[in-house]
Design a protein around this nucleic acid. Structure first.
Lengths: 221, 221
DNA sequence: TCACTAATGTACGAACTAGTACGTTAGCTA
DNA sequence: TAGCTAACGTACTAGTTCGTACATTAGTGA
């Protein structure tokens, strides 16, 4: 099996810095996500790559920096997805719902990312703070939300007095919790929040919640 | 300083199994919450108690069981708080808002609990699964929500078709995320979700969100 | 008051783990 | 094609960490 893996390259090392780095990052993402920062084993990461532990230190410097690199790549994925957001041609209500659904989909599709963020929060975001790349850039989604909110408020559709960051927090909290806390929630309440047949239910629930909040009739209160 | 700690007990060990156990649990809660399961150090926990590592193994059996005991006690605190819920004399809208606010307050007041739950989710709730105490009992809050929802729906106030578990998830997600993800959220978006002067803002936002969702005019959709 | 047990303390070890010193080689370029 | 360097591998170590064997004592009941 091991010899079939690669296409007829019987002997000798192949040198490919980019591939080696990427492979280390792939495996490290899995291992950190599986066991947390302290629980992850550098030896285990190395063993699961085609290279050795030496290369981890050669390319990344240490366990701490490797985790930072893993985080940086994970965040870059969501940032790229957000840059593809194309919802501003929709009316504000539909645009926000679509945005919420895309956030929902992205969280569901990337449970490893959710776990890494949970782990980073246990460590009080110290790796983000230490990273030049992560500290500076914001979220493309935030700008999109800002513009939709403005349009919706001008047209009188949106009555709520929220800013983009808080609305982003509201949407993220539901999407994040559903994935991050699925195990304890499932164990305690006997309900699987990520069961495939409940997916549409929760996706709709999220959209309904956000739209209801934004368009609620405040004259009643 | 060390001699002033205890009231005039100059020499000899004082034996108090209950106090020793409780002290170990207190320190272990802090240490696990600070560093995660793998990151927590049994020696460190022992050093910060008035007893020795030996006692951890004597009373709890090992690191794994100690963490389970810490979790069990942390969950028992929230369960006790939920048993004191007294909102059913209010009208359904006020009752749900009050319940949401109490959940909000409890999460804010117990960041260690939030961290422990995050950590337990990284470990896929394996300790909850292994615990007889935690696996069986549900949440008292759930029964309260169930009854309020029924009253609200009968009276026509609540139009949303949610059950108690999903509403609980919605409320918890906002409260939990605000505390659990405050570090990454703060680092990435420059906003402190637990800033004291924003407390009322987010508390109100949560209530507004839940009520808007429950009472939204569905004939418009 | 004597003996017995629950509770406690000390000292230690086996296994693990992050990190490194040192040696090797593929592949490019002059 | 010779030589140079980035890329890679091996073997090892110093320090840590969970867990335990063994010794001791406080308090209680006969």
């Amino acid at each position: 099996m091991t010899s079939v893996e690669e296409p007829a390259r019987p002997a000798g090392r192949i040198r490919d810095a980019a591939r080696t780095k990427a492979e280390i990052l792939d495996v490290a993402t899995q291992e950190f996500s599986r066991a947390g920062f302290a629980g992850a084993r550098v030896d285990e990461i190395a063993a699961r790559t085609r290279t050795t532990k030496r290369m981890i230190y050669y390319y990344f410097g240490g366990k701490e920096q490797l985790f930072t690199a893993v985080l940086e790549r994970a965040y870059s994925v969501i940032r790229m997805a957000e840059q593809e957001l194309d919802v501003e041609h929709l009316d504000p209500v539909a645009a926000i719902r679509r945005l919420a659904e895309l956030t929902f989909d992205h969280h569901e599709a990337h449970p490893d990312f959710i776990r890494l963020v949970s782990i980073e929060n246990i460590h009080e975001a110290e790796h983000i703070a230490a990273s030049e790349e992560l500290g500076t850039i914001g979220s493309p989604a935030l700008e999109v939300i800002r513009r939709i909110l403005e349009t919706g408020r001008k047209s009188g559709l949106f009555t709520a007095d929220v800013d983009a960051v808080d609305l982003h927090a509201m949407i993220s909290s539901f999407c994040f919790f559903r994935v991050s806390n699925r195990h304890t929630f499932g164990a305690l309440f006997g309900r699987d929040l990520v069961a495939p047949d409940q997916r549409e239910h929760y996706r709709t629930m999220l959209g309904d919640m956000v739209i209801a909040y934004l368009t609620a009739d405040r004259t009643q209160d």
